[in-house]
Nucleic acid binder design. Structure first.
Length: 513
RNA sequence: GCGGAAGUAGCUCAGUUGGUAGAGCAUUAGCCUUCCAAGCUAAUGGUCGCGGGUUCGAGUCUCGUCUUCCGCUCCA
């Protein structure tokens, strides 16, 4: 089976068993948007808990927040997200060249102004010799006509661009008969805005509603709260602020299942450090984050660092942790040394002082930031791709099994009466009652026992507890392990401790400290 | 954005020169009782992606459109 076939099967499996559905599927779906089903949601929650607790519980100097998705629009001016990405673009279909629509119109206006200048120059030159009233009137009329056209165009440009009326912008370009400087044709595409931020309006339209944005990253919610958290929690540098939340990017090309979605979830931690110490913390978090991934046991060979050579404007070091997905090594997480860029910019744009007084150094400074930022959805995909297997059994049959690490598995235990009479279902229910406060437990009495095992394998349940007639006599059950299919007989009253030992996140945390 | 392919039941698919939409699995209800899936009986489930057109009649022919997948391009 090729990697491509495996990926297709994984997508089908995810849908069939209730992990991930295409969004709004009854309306033919919405491109690059997906919903998490009953099992996907559990898996995702478990991943988030693994991450959150590994940050908050294991580190005395990291606290978590949950900032709003809506933020003051100035946030995005300060962060640099508004600006270069905000231009209306238009392509010429013949030359295949892309232009800024507003620049094309402005160039046209400049040309008209040149025409006026030429007319006037010509008139001045001519009337210096002999004044002709008829020619003067004609020249004047041409100039006034051009000026009127310029004024109309400027008004129309301001109206369409200001109101984000892209159809209007294109209509204007067509009306002005602007041609491509290279191909010389007027074969234009529609005007498109390649802004990665989604816009919406706050307030009633009649009152002059303001444009606000769905955040394209969660980080800014932490930066703008830096002083709130530092002061209210009495945090001393170095310290971190963690957050899990949705972010939104209007990607032009969004593909590969849940790898690149327009709405996605990030887990990120901004670690604030003294200037000059950022590189050592950068190395520290690189190592810690890699340990976090590898603790899941998918194999070290499936991970690698990809150090950035070309850095973003705010960073002085950056690396990605890449995982070997069915479609190749791709970024799951980024670790960036963001310098003091963000806090400085917010200080500048807000006019507030954002500094930290370091009592050890006895000086005040703008902290440097080391960021770890991981995509929850990519993490879900990592777990599913690593876990999905089709095994050939000794009897020649194949079984589909999701070897999800037990602490992340959506369902921890299935309790199965061997047959559905003689009081076996009732005993199974008693066992479920002893486990359900702590774990997600399923009951299943339909079909043969082998079939029920396979059903649980397909959704990644690590443990099956089977109740048989012997259970009624001596109070023992068999416990069957997903990956090895091995069975052992244990006392019912030992089950809670045994299950807890296998499915607890603690086994993962132990590898991190 | 360009090119290619696909879309029929929850899933995998069949559907003849255009003539009343099928199978297996799944699901549900019984029966049976067996520690590694497909025992018996019955039931449920489809405006054939959507919208026009041709035709007495369209899953089938035709045009458009949407969605998904693959490749290229673009973006980071």
């Amino acid at each position: 089976m090729t990697q491509e076939e495996l990926f297709k099967k994984l997508i089908a499996h995810s849908k069939e068993y209730g992990f991930i559905f295409p969004s709004s599927e009854i309306y033919d779906g919405l491109s690059a948007v997906y919903d998490y089903g009953q099992l996907g949601c559990e898996l995702k929650n478990n991943i988030k808990k693994y991450w959150w607790d590994s940050m908050i519980k294991l580190h005395g100097n990291i606290v978590g927040i949950d900032a709003a998705i809506f933020m003051h629009p100035k946030t995005w001016e300060a962060s640099g997200h508004l600006g270069a990405f905000n231009d209306p673009l238009i392509d010429n279909k013949d030359s295949k060249k892309r232009y800024r629509a507003d620049v094309l119109i402005e160039e046209w206006i400049e040309k008209q102004k040149d025409k006026i200048k030429k007319e006037v120059d010509k008139a001045v030159k001519r009337f210096g010799d002999s004044f002709d009233e008829a020619q003067f009137v004609a020249t004047n009329a041409r100039v006034v006509e051009l000026q009127t056209k310029i004024k109309e165009t400027e008004d129309e440009m301001a109206r369409t661009l200001g109101g984000n009326d892209l159809v209007g912008v294109k209509a204007l370009i067509e009306k002005l008969e602007i041609v491509c400087p290279i191909s010389g044709t007027r074969n234009w595409t529609d005007v498109r805005q390649f802004n990665l931020m989604f816009e919406t309006k706050v307030g009633a339209a009649a009152d002059g509603a303001n444009t606000i944005y769905l955040r394209p990253e969660t980080a800014q919610g932490i930066f703008v709260n830096f002083l709130n958290v530092q002061k209210s929690a009495r945090m001393k540098i170095p310290f971190g602020i963690a957050q899990i939340g949705k972010a939104f990017r209007n990607e032009i090309v969004a593909r590969q299942f849940i790898f690149r979605m327009r709405e996605f979830e990030q887990m990120e931690m901004q670690f604030f450090v003294a200037p000059g110490t950022e590189m050592q913390w950068y190395e520290h978090w690189k190592a810690f984050r890699m340990r976090w991934h590898q603790a899941l046991g998918f194999g070290a060979q499936n991970y690698r660092f990809h150090d950035h050579i070309k850095l973003a404007h705010y960073a002085n070091a950056a690396t990605d942790i890449e995982f070997d997905f069915p479609f190749g090594f791709k970024e799951v997480e980024g670790i960036h040394s963001r310098t003091n860029y963000d806090l400085s910019r917010h200080a500048e744009f807000s006019g507030k002082k954002i500094t930290y007084f370091d009592t050890d150094k006895n000086e005040s400074y703008v902290p440097y930031v080391v960021e770890t930022s991981i995509g929850v959805d990519r993490m879900v995909l990592q777990v599913l791709s690593a876990a999905y297997k089709e095994e050939l059994l000794e009897n020649g049959e194949t079984r589909t099994v999701l070897s999800i690490p037990a602490p992340l598995a959506p369902v921890k235990v299935a309790v199965l009466p061997l047959i559905k009479k003689d009081g076996l279902p009732e005993l199974a229910q008693t066992i479920i009652n002893s486990l359900k406060f702590d774990h997600n437990v399923q009951f299943d009495e339909k079909d043969s026992i082998g079939k029920r095992y396979r059903r649980q394998d397909a959704i990644g349940t690590p443990l099956c507890v089977t109740v048989d007639h012997q259970s009624l006599e001596d109070g023992t059950v068999t416990i069957r392990h997903r990956d090895t299919m091995a069975q052992e007989r244990v006392a019912i009253d030992q089950l809670p401790a045994l299950v807890n030992c296998i499915v607890s996140l603690n086994s993962l945390f132990a590898k991190l400290v």
